[in-house]
Design a protein around this nucleic acid. Sequence first.
DNA 1: GTCTATATGTTGATAGAC
DNA 2: GTCTATCAACATATAGAC
Lengths: 202, 202
Amino acid sequence: MPKELDAKEKILEAAKGIFYKKGLGGARMAEIAEEAGINKAMLHYYFSSKEQLFETVFEEAFHKIIPSIISVLNSEKPIREKIEEIADFYITTLSANPQLPVFVLNAIQYDPERFLGKFMKNKQMSPQAFMGKLMQQFQQEIQEGKLPPVDPRHLIINLIGLSVFPFMMKPMLKIMMNMDDESFHDLMESRRELIPRFLLDT
Amino acid sequence: MPKELDAKEKILEAAKGIFYKKGLGGARMAEIAEEAGINKAMLHYYFSSKEQLFETVFEEAFHKIIPSIISVLNSEKPIREKIEEIADFYITTLSANPQLPVFVLNAIQYDPERFLGKFMKNKQMSPQAFMGKLMQQFQQEIQEGKLPPVDPRHLIINLIGLSVFPFMMKPMLKIMMNMDDESFHDLMESRRELIPRFLLDT
DNA sequence: GTCTATATGTTGATAGAC
DNA sequence: GTCTATCAACATATAGAC
């Protein structure tokens, strides 16, 4: 079944492009079909409804940017390495797809129950298990003098904010700071090392 | 004309609540009318179209979070004060309305031409005039030893990111870190002084 | 200024031939 | 699996009475 995968893949690719930009309400099924180079009816052959197609796209986007960092935070590496790895991960991922975070956060703002429910269902993200272990590691490394005495919650928030937010602001930053795509890219690249240094060398 | 202002105000209030959450495409005029406690026809009495109503709401939101900081950056104060003022401004503004940034950034992602055009039109935001003067001030204060030698572009990006991003992540952070509204609020309050210290004491 | 009723155009979804 | 043609529902917008 090469044809089948081909068509389904083309639909998903088109749906991503349009949903990322316009969201659930702003996207039109006809538009997606045209972009995919197929017929409107085909969409409903592979995906029962617009909502289901959207959820498929959302789920992929969500899993692309959230569980990865949870798993890093849950790993056995020292904090310093975790931070470097996460900044690196976001800069790589979002350089290839800057629209991702606004898309995901907008869906969550639209319907938190629905699009954040996938959160709690996931075992490894249970807040207690997850944050508890991490807090402990922080305390220990701080006591050992490996880390400056910082509030772990702020550190995590800062890390994600410093890594992700610039991509959300990309269109505005390009205008405000008079950058083209290349100089924006260079600026983001320089943050790979800047962010960890900035967070830890106090 | 108290009645008139009342109705128009009620419409705008309702429209804000619903557009903030659902965006242009996801919102329904009927929903806004109901929320405002008036009739669907009344919406078109005060606002010619859904698009025009949305643009009104967008413009207000946009001006609430962007020009204020531009004017601070353009002022004559020392960098240190500017930074404190901007962090303070965002934490106050977004504590009252955490949905604002996702709403604005989503509209821009939806149609950059349309919703970022208001940018270039504004005189004071002309990138050259604006960033040029600011860069100069940075250089001078760094030479005078008042500031650590940082790239001004990163500093501005970091400042805004650290101030704004946590509010965009609010629903997710509350779950991940097991916070209720009150402890989230406390955490944000503590950032008023944390952010400037973090940015400047290197 | 405010309402009810209605026109007009889209849109998501399906039926059914190939 | 893929298409054309079509339906039924809905949403924006307007007409017109009060």
